[in-house]
């Protein structure tokens, strides 16, 4: 058996009614895996761009791409090999934590403190997905109350 590998696929789709459910429905119906999915309109066009992180054997990945192509509103499917990936994360940290240390950690991951409320500070970081995972691990000792990840966006080099 082929081993399962992680892949980032970008899908350019017509920005129309129900298009997102066509894509996610396809993944669900055919038993493909979605690790994360992000979607937003492409500025100045009638298209949207989805970035899907998935995993599977090379044959499964090939099928995913072909099946995506087959959907009528799909304009283009880009299977990334050379790409820059970024993910964003936000978290709430209690004010009693040592915010100077928190801020130093955020800086190391292209982030900072973005808001301070009555009892929590909101922080953010944006980095490669694997580094975001590390960041979240490191963040644990500051007792985050809530962590929100954006999912991956990617662009071809």
């Amino acid at each position: 058996m082929h081993s399962s590998e992680r892949r980032v696929i970008s899908v350019i789709v017509l920005n129309e009614h129900g298009v997102l459910s066509r894509i996610t429905g396809l993944f669900a119906a055919r038993g493909y895996n979605i690790e994360s999915v992000t979607v937003a309109p492409i500025p100045g066009s009638k298209y949207s761009r989805l970035t899907i992180v998935t995993s599977g054997s090379p044959r499964v990945i090939e099928q995913i791409i072909k099946q995506l192509h087959k959907l009528i509103p799909v304009y283009k499917v880009i299977e990334h090999s050379e790409l820059v990936e970024k993910e964003m994360v936000m978290a709430k940290i209690p004010l009693e934590e040592r915010l100077a240390d928190v801020e130093a950690l955020c800086r190391a991951y292209n982030g900072n403190i973005v808001n301070i409320g009555t009892d929590t500070a909101i922080i953010m970081a944006a980095d490669e997905p694997s580094r975001i995972a590390n960041f979240i691990k490191a963040l644990k000792r500051f007792n985050p109350k809530e962590i929100v990840r954006s999912g991956v966006v990617a662009i071809e080099r």
Partner: peptide
């Protein structure tokens, strides 16, 4: 209806 027919049609439309 379009939610149901999506996986068993080549394509479907809800007319707005």
């Amino acid at each position: 209806a379009v939610g149901i027919s999506r996986p068993c049609t080549k394509h479907n439309f809800l007319v707005k």
